Simulated scan of single mutants.
Amino acid sequence: MKKYILIALVLGFCLPGMAQTALKSGTQAPAFTAKDNTGKNLDLKALLKSHKSVVLFFYRGQWCPYCNKHIQQLQDSLQLLTAKGAYVIGVTPETGENINKTIEKTHASFSIIQDKDNSIMKAYNVNYTVDANLYAKLKGYGVDLEKGNGNTDHVLPVPATYIINSAGKIIFMHFDKDYTQRPSVSQIAKNL
């Protein structure tokens, strides 16, 4: 556990200088189509026709204790969100194998998407590239982004959460360069 906290601290302290500015509330949410961890095709526009909203969140990977804690909280209160007509989707650059590790750790039963080409992260402006120095430090702690993400681009998302209403507008966003800050489930539910 100490190893994971140290990794989170190293990555967190380096994140502020690299991160971009997120999309704001009131803007149109970028549409996307992707397969989730179960092989289900997800299309944002179609989901918004059959649900009142979509809770879309971005996480770095199964190696991040803050990501796992947030996912576990979402899972523990999933019924509260779905009862308000929300469909929950997690987005990560990690491979399906590592998504499965996240599911084992958190028991997540909602959709998780591997953003293979980082297109969803880029569309929501939450992507950043880990520099070579930080990449080497992470690898020294046992986090191999190339193996974990199945590519060599070293892109991770700023942990961010968006609520998208049935009209396709972002009505809530949480984007904080401090990786330890995540919205509470009650904060998300209040905005549904």
Rank of each mutant, 00 (worst) to 15 (best):
K45E: 15
K45R: 14
A46N: 15
A46I: 13
A46D: 14
A46K: 15
L47G: 10
L48N: 10
L48Q: 11
L48C: 10
K49D: 14
K49M: 10
K49P: 11
K49T: 14
S50L: 04
S50R: 13
S50C: 08
H51V: 08
H51M: 09
K52T: 11
K52A: 09
K52R: 13
K52S: 12
S53D: 14
S53A: 15
S53I: 08
V54Q: 07
V54Y: 04
V55G: 02
V55Q: 03
L56F: 03
L56Y: 08
F57N: 08
F57S: 03
F57D: 02
F57W: 01
F58T: 01
F58V: 00
Y59I: 06
G61P: 04
G61M: 03
W63S: 05
W63D: 01
C64S: 08
C64W: 00
P65F: 04
P65G: 02
P65T: 02
Y66L: 08
Y66A: 07
C67K: 07
C67W: 04
C67D: 11
C67E: 09
N68D: 00
K69L: 13
K69P: 00
K69V: 09
I71S: 04
I71D: 03
I71A: 02
Q72W: 01
Q73G: 12
L74M: 10
L74C: 09
Q75P: 01
Q75L: 02
D76S: 14
S77F: 11
S77R: 15
L78Y: 04
L78T: 01
Q79N: 15
Q79D: 15
L80S: 14
L80D: 15
L80G: 12
L81C: 06
T82A: 05
T82E: 09
A83P: 10
A83Q: 15
K84N: 12
A86E: 10
A86N: 12
A86W: 08
Y87V: 12
Y87N: 13
I89P: 07
I89T: 07
G90A: 06
G90H: 05
G90F: 04
V91Y: 02
V91L: 00
V91E: 06
T92D: 06
T92P: 07
T92Q: 00
P93L: 02
P93E: 01
P93A: 08
G96K: 03
G96I: 03
G96V: 00
E97Q: 14
E97K: 12
E97Y: 10
E97S: 11
N98T: 06
N98A: 09
N98I: 02
I99W: 01
I99A: 05
N100I: 05
N100S: 15
N100A: 15
N100Y: 09
N100V: 10
T102V: 07
T102W: 04
I103L: 07
E104G: 02
E104A: 07
H107Y: 12
A108V: 00
A108L: 00
A108G: 07
S109A: 14
F110H: 00
